[in-house]
């Protein structure tokens, strides 16, 4: 009988549920899932931020002494580092011998390169404070301004201090604002104290790392004159062995 083979509607198999996929059908349930997913996303983003996951990755491992580092403001090739005594003050200073040439066509103040160079001591017990620049061909004379197109063998001399205890909190992003506000306050008592004895910290140090930042020539924010500023971009990191001279 031919009729026996007619297809019947309710025998046809269901392809999919009316909503499709694995999502529940109710609007409320769907809204709850969307809400839950958003909360999860936000919480994980905050957690990653708090753990420092959005900080830029270290560009490259620290390079060897003698590596040439080019920035827009200057090209620097650090060769060696020593702790030595400043003949004028008698205090221990960090002296880095490096080839230095300006990439500008106008002179700029020598200490302006300090903001592009971070000095790190692995022990964390020392801090480089102020930079002065001398040239090996006339080490008695301070260099006030770096002149253009004059490659020099330079002595970068940093005075040393103990890192401020307050600095530590600033690595924690949740405490950063409060910490930076505290740092902006001048500690007048500390200025009047005798310089701390850095002998043990200096004896302990075996190497230093110079982090050299890229820089840009632009107007300042409050003082709108144009000058060199350091950027966050790291041009290079160079690790130098360091010893006490003499």
């Amino acid at each position: 009988m031919a009729l026996h083979f007619l297809p019947v509607a309710h025998h046809a198999p269901h392809a999919q549920g009316p909503g499709g996929g694995f999502l529940p059908e109710g609007r409320l349930a769907r809204a709850l899932i969307a809400l839950g997913a958003s909360v999860l996303l936000i919480v994980s983003a905050v957690a990653i931020w708090a753990a420092g996951g959005f900080e830029p990755a270290d560009a490259a491992p620290a390079a060897q002494p003698g590596t040439r580092v080019e920035t827009r403001q200057f090209t620097l090739t650090p060769h060696e580092a020593v702790f030595t005594e400043d003949p004028d003050t008698g205090l221990t200073v960090l002296q880095v011998r490096a080839d230095l040439v300006s990439n500008d066509t106008k002179p700029y103040y020598a200490d302006s390169i300090d903001q592009s160079i971070e000095v790190e001591f692995p022990s964390g017990k020392l801090e480089a404070t102020m930079l002065t620049v001398k040239y090996t061909r006339h080490p008695e004379g301070l260099v006030s301004q770096i002149q253009p197109d004059m490659p020099e063998e330079a002595l970068l001399v940093w005075s040393l201090g103990k890192p401020d205890e307050k600095d530590k909190d600033c690595d924690d992003p949740l405490a950063r604002l409060e910490c930076e506000r505290e740092q902006a306050e001048i500690d007048w008592d500390a200025i009047l104290e005798d310089p701390p004895d850095l002998g043990p910290a200096v004896a302990e140090e075996r190497e230093i790392t110079l982090t050299i930042h890229q820089n840009v020539y632009q107007p300042g924010f409050t003082d709108q004159s144009e000058r060199w500023f350091a950027e966050d971009d790291v041009a290079a990191k160079i690790t130098l062995p360091v010893s006490e001279e003499g």
Binding site: T105, K106, P107, H138, G141, L142, V143, S144, Q145, Q147, P148, D149
Partner: peptide, 16 residues
């Protein structure tokens, strides 16, 4: 004082 060259290169007085 500065010494400004024809090509724009500029030099300031020596501090030595």
């Amino acid at each position: 004082a500065q010494l400004v060259m024809g090509d724009g290169y500029t030099y300031s007085v020596t501090s030595w």
